[in-house]
């Protein structure tokens, strides 16, 4: 079926307009250039970079990736060259080779002040559409997940990042100061809706969920844990039902837009997340298996919207028929 030209595909994350609802998940897409041979980066709703910290982080030693049934565990540990090298190399590459791409920079830190300093530095640069604040990485010892499992800590980081984004370095242009702050949530909590509400109250413009689920693996021959840090993050199709449930649950708890992700492996998976209440979706591990999956999702969502009689993709968000409970 030919997509109807009448379907409007754009969606909104706070003040940011995305040309379509399909993004990449941080950590699975490098800084974009690694996939430029496979897709047109500017076709994406947004490209979300690998996490960037104030100083270079070397990441974890030992095994880093391990396949599981319908999924994979990772323990990369947010290896990245630090914000200065990110700006000089990755951001510069994107500005030169993909000037029309919508770039969201994922921000990490060991302390609240480190998150703030990364955002203050990024606020001096053009070519960035929004910040995604990672308070949910299970693979680092300080920061990361620790901030994302407690409502007060999550709120404090959100508030500090939001202020830093709006303040910039004092010399930021008005456009830069308007960049939305998206907070990325962990599924490794008892009540994700409570954390979501805390972030919304603290000023988050949007929420991204879910990060990986804590898991582990054992080498039975050596009788050792596979990962040096013992635990690792589970991703891939195995986690999709959990992710979908959490997106549905959080969509009912907050009124800010959500970026839904977790195990999207087909365009139909992406549509499920939109129907569950996500404004946008992100493809993560799925990029490893099919580097063109994002583009296939974009095409199919538009086609599906037309088939279902939606004039805008935004009308699909949370568009579930009521199920009458007897």
């Amino acid at each position: 079926m030919t997509p109807s030209p009448a379907v409007s595909t754009s969606v909104h994350l706070g003040s940011l307009t995305l040309k379509n609802p399909v993004m990449t998940a941080s950590g699975t897409f490098g800084s974009g250039k690694q996939y430029a041979d496979f897709i047109d980066l500017s076709a994406l709703g947004a490209l979300v970079t690998k996490g960037v910290s104030l100083e270079p982080w070397s990441g974890n030693s030992g095994v880093r990736v391990y396949e599981t049934p319908s999924g994979m565990l990772n323990s990369i540990g947010l290896q990245n060259p630090g914000v200065e090298a990110f700006i000089a190399d990755d951001l510069a590459w994107l500005r030169e080779h993909a000037p029309d791409a919508t770039v969201i920079v994922n921000v990490s830190g060991h302390t609240r002040d480190e998150y703030v300093q990364v955002i203050e530095r990024l606020a001096q640069e053009d070519g960035i559409a929004a910040y995604e604040v990672n308070i949910s990485c299970p693979n680092v010892d300080r920061g990361g997940l620790a901030f994302g499992t407690d409502p007060d800590s999550a709120a404090a980081i959100t508030r500090a990042c939001k202020e830093a984004a709006a303040r910039g370095d004092g010399a930021s242009t008005a456009a830069r100061a308007k960049r939305p702050v998206i907070v990325k949530l962990s599924p490794n909590v008892t009540d994700i809706a409570e954390i979501a509400r805390a972030c919304e109250d603290a000023g988050a413009d949007a929420l991204a969920l879910i990060n990986t689920i804590l898991g582990t693996a054992i080498n039975i021959q050596k009788r050792t844990m596979v990962f040096e840090r013992t635990v690792a993050g589970l991703s891939g199709p195995a986690i999709k039902p959990v992710a979908l449930r959490m997106v549905w649950q959080v969509a009912r708890a907050v009124s800010i837009p959500l970026v839904g992700m977790g195990g999207i492996a087909t365009p139909d998976d992406a549509i499920e997340f939109l129907l569950a209440g996500a404004t946008a979706v992100a493809v993560g591990t799925g990029n490893f298996i099919d580097p063109t999956l994002t583009v296939r999702c974009i095409e199919r969502i538009e086609e599906y919207a037309a088939e279902q009689g939606f004039s805008a993709v935004e009308d699909m968000i949370g568009a579930l028929e009521r199920r009458d409970i007897p």
């Binding site: 699975t28 490098g30 690694q34 996939y35 690998k50 990736v65 990369i76 290896q79 990029n287 490893f288």
Partner: peptide
């Protein structure tokens, strides 16, 4: 995992 330099 990725094979293209993205996932580290």
């Amino acid at each position: 995992a990725c094979g293209v330099g993205a996932c580290l």
